[in-house]
Design a binder for these strands. Structure first.
Lengths: 190, 190
DNA sequence: TTGCTCCTCACGTCACGTGAGGTGGC
DNA sequence: TTGCTCCTCACGTCACGTGAGGTGGC
């Protein structure tokens, strides 16, 4: 019965799905329950293995039935797609570290301000221009000058809260990214 | 009209979709056509920017309308998910390089053989055991000994075909991976 | 009249998740 | 009778893609 097949880490619903799409059709007993024979279990293991390599259910069916395209080609395409996804993920990661890093030193920027920052980053999709950096630095200096000691302590507290959810690796990456994005004059300030 | 909005790189259908889900509802003219005012275009730019940061349409709507959760938190979660996806992609890439690398020296393995290899890799999800390595080496030696010079030339040709679709970087990574996976005795053979 | 863009349904995608409602053997 | 597992519909997910069939202004 399907409960034992669930030992493979799949849900019953997944097995129903494989049955419906014709990927794995076990026999039925008198009560209509699915009975997975040894050959079914072996096929299921192959399905799980191929699925773990990123193949779609259609590709898996074609491979196991010998009707699909060459598995070797399939795997090479998978490799290409995976590398593209990794690259895209890294670009997104860099942009996210960019905003989060730029957000760090400011006090509670409103969503509206963050959206504007993201818009600017998207529009020029480069680092900041010197003029913008100077403007940001100027605003920041003015803000810091106007803060009372109490407000400074609050800001430090909030900054710690903002980074407490991050792993050490994330923090390191964020700092490295900020270092690349911003000139040295910004770094030893805080 | 929507044609100008298509200058943002979106399809007309996407704008229809944003309209239907209430993310961006332009005014209509007498003929029922959508008319995007300046404010609509600005909002659309913000939508595109936030979408580029991995936010869902629901999250974008909540952010722009000020009703959603904190954008700062959203971006941190995005960062975590992105890093997880990158890590998962790298693991998949490593496994793909593993099979493709192991497949290299063999002549046209059938899909069935590749499936078995993938199954083994999945089952133990480690490198090969010494016994398996010895067995594979034995089979390989026997096979090479039985080949005629003509067959050897064919094999070399097929091997070149198999790798011709790969970039230099992919080849380098593949070789490095094979070096880590297999003992030295396998390397200078070919 | 001929093109062109625009419109509205409405189904399809991918691999299932999630109830809703019912059945057979302990 | 009470639980338990099993079953079959059938809709929902996410961001649109893709025809099908019709309309208004040049």
């Amino acid at each position: 019965v399907g409960e034992l097949a669930q030992a493979t880490g799949l849900t019953i619903r997944a097995l129903h799905h494989y049955d419906r799409v014709g990927l794995l059709t076990p026999t039925r007993n008198a009560g209509g329950h699915r009975c997975y024979a040894g050959s079914d279990v072996r096929r299921l293991h192959q399905i799980v293995a191929l699925r773990g390599f990123g193949l779609s259910l259609t590709e898996i069916a074609g491979t196991l039935d010998g009707t699909g395209p060459d598995l070797h080609d399939l795997l090479r395409r998978q490799l290409e797609q995976t590398q593209e996804r990794i690259a895209a993920g890294r670009r997104l990661q860099a942009r996210l570290l960019g905003v989060l890093g730029a957000l760090g030193p400011r006090d509670q920027p409103s969503a509206q301000e963050i959206v504007e920052l993201i818009e600017e980053m998207t529009n020029m999709d480069q680092a900041f221009t010197p003029q913008q950096l100077e403007q940001m630095a100027q605003q920041r200096r003015e803000m810091m000058d106007r803060l009372t000691p109490q407000e400074l302590a609050d800001l430090q507290l909030r900054r710690e809260e903002a980074t407490s959810g991050l792993s050490p690796d994330q923090l390191t990456e964020m700092r490295q990214h900020r270092r690349r994005l911003l000139p040295d004059s910004w770094l030893p300030d805080s």
